[in-house]
């Protein structure tokens, strides 16, 4: 908890209530109450089609649910969650510009001066180990580098909450490690991290708490230490034992 939390709501507090989303009569999301107030990072586990990505997009304000609302720091999320939240997608979409220009694009939107932008840009590139690539075209980066740049771009706007949607599902172990290192750094700097993954190992490495989603419903939401010892739900047990859950 940050100092002064007793007096004002933590701006990183994320709550969702009565979240419903269905398409053609099929319920995709059905979540009565979800509160993310722990230290995190929060890892969301679940099979394909469980609604993980949908949940993330709802929390990020990119999809309007049929019913229910999302609140950050006690305030309703506007449809464009500028500045306070950022998201990294499974497939990074980088602008057709240089690595540097990709970061500058985000920084410029915050109205920073040229000096401040250059400084912050160099700092970010250093953090992601992309400094030697600064002037290279972003589209020519390898998959791992591209995803690192996407994480850096998300962090460039100093978000209070960082969402990641299976950021390393297409990456090799070394690149995965690099992305996880960035995520950990963001977490240590006080950003709330909410991340979807398929990889139980990754959840073990990163999670502060784990949320298991199955068929659009929250099966359980447990602190990591407890989760990996004694998962409460059957879905979670199956997931941990490496069995298939259908």
């Amino acid at each position: 908890m940050r100092e002064g939390a007793a007096f004002r709501t933590d701006p990183r507090l994320l709550e969702a209530s009565g979240l419903r989303l269905s398409k053609q009569g099929v319920a995709l999301l059905n979540i009565d109450k979800l509160v993310l107030d722990g230290a995190g990072p929060t890892l969301i586990l679940g099979p394909n089609g469980a609604g993980k990505s949908l949940l993330l997009r709802c929390l990020h304000g990119m999809i309007q649910p049929d019913a229910g609302e999302v609140r950050q720091g006690g305030r309703r999320l506007d449809s464009l969650a500028c500045g306070r939240q950022a998201m990294v997608f499974q497939q990074p979409v980088l602008l057709r510009r240089t690595v540097q220009a990709n970061l500058d694009y985000v920084l410029r939107r915050q109205g920073l001066s040229r000096m401040a932008r250059a400084e912050r840009c160099a700092e970010l590139l250093d953090m992601g180990g992309l400094a030697p690539r600064a002037r290279q075209w972003a589209r020519s980066l390898s998959g791992g580098e591209a995803q690192r740049l996407a994480v850096l771009r998300a962090l460039a706007c100093d978000p209070e909450i960082l969402f990641l949607d299976e950021p390393s599902s297409a990456l090799d172990p070394a690149s995965t490690k690099a992305v996880e290192a960035l995520v950990r750094q963001a977490h240590e700097r006080g950003t709330r991290v909410v991340m979807v993954t398929h990889d139980v190992g990754q959840a073990r490495r990163l999670a502060g708490d784990v949320l298991v989603l199955h068929r659009g419903e929250v099966m359980e939401h447990t602190p990591a230490a407890e989760f990996f010892d004694r998962p409460r739900s059957r879905a979670a047990r199956c997931f941990l034992e490496g069995r298939l859950i259908l």
Partner: peptide, 22 residues
Amino acid sequence: YAETLRSLGVSRLASVPTLLWD
């Protein structure tokens, strides 16, 4: 680009120069 730009807080109108340039 739409999803990424939206996530970065770029409105539809503001995304036009970006799209033209890219």
